[in-house]
Design a binder for these strands. Sequence first.
DNA 1: TTTCAGTTGTAAGATATTCTCAACTGTGAT
DNA 2: ATCACAGTTGAGAATATCTTACAACTGAAA
Lengths: 152, 152
Amino acid sequence: MADTFTIHDLKRKLQERQHKMTPQRQIVLQVFLDNPGEHLSAEDVRDLLKESHSEIGLATIYRSLELLSELSILEKIEFGDGCARYEVTNVQPNTHHHHHIICENCGKVIEFEDDLLESLEDAIEKKFDFKINNHQVKFFGICKECQERAQN
Amino acid sequence: MADTFTIHDLKRKLQERQHKMTPQRQIVLQVFLDNPGEHLSAEDVRDLLKESHSEIGLATIYRSLELLSELSILEKIEFGDGCARYEVTNVQPNTHHHHHIICENCGKVIEFEDDLLESLEDAIEKKFDFKINNHQVKFFGICKECQERAQN
DNA sequence: TTTCAGTTGTAAGATATTCTCAACTGTGAT
DNA sequence: ATCACAGTTGAGAATATCTTACAACTGAAA
């Protein structure tokens, strides 16, 4: 299995739901594949497309991001900077989750991997009769650089 | 020590920062004390105040919520429903963290307690030179009622 | 009581996101 | 190939949440 989603995965998932494979949807996914590790907002996507002269309507970008999230290709994350951001989901199920450490001062985001909460998911499913699909962990604090800057 | 914040705690924390104790700030905190366990948005607070005929300006509500967060009296949480929500912070330091289980279908939020991540905070502080202040964990899934509704 | 930094309310502004709708286009059926 | 149509797009209007500007007001220290 490839280590990330492909355009073909997109087509397959769209067909399962009577959705059409459009150039716009391909383009939006491609932006994420071309910018691994980034947490892109709708405006980020629009700006990147403007640079590469393949602009599409902003409303369509929003619609595509939502659709790609529903298809579990992208994951929506809020870092508290006033806009929703997205990143490509790990393809393999049961793979490492990666979580985010956010600097409350400068907004920098660092990622780290951990599986600590997998076992908790089972416990929660039993206790609350919830079908858990995903979880997000965020740590908030002050990054090294901002700490140093504050000392001067 | 009381098991939640009081108006007196607010006064003390405000004084530490050269901020004034105003009726509006008391009122906003009181709304949270009167509605334990709720995750209130700015508009929720405004509506509750309208009911009790003690309205204050919406901008002031926003400002108070932000200030109360800075004073660590309230905690800001985003559940993905398009607005920031707040809840009263646990008074005792090093107390149990409580996390949220969110139904992706109906938006219901259930809480549960856990300390699993305390040890991780130390590891992260060392590894990334981050000063961690807080963390949030969210589980996303489908609640019991929505699962049952989907089967019919 | 005086003084003034800090605060409030109103209205306007900024920003992110969703909606409306007419024109367009994949896709399955013929 | 072509047709038919459900689904999609783009543009702009609309909405929602939140922030800012500013003149009037007010706790609280002296």
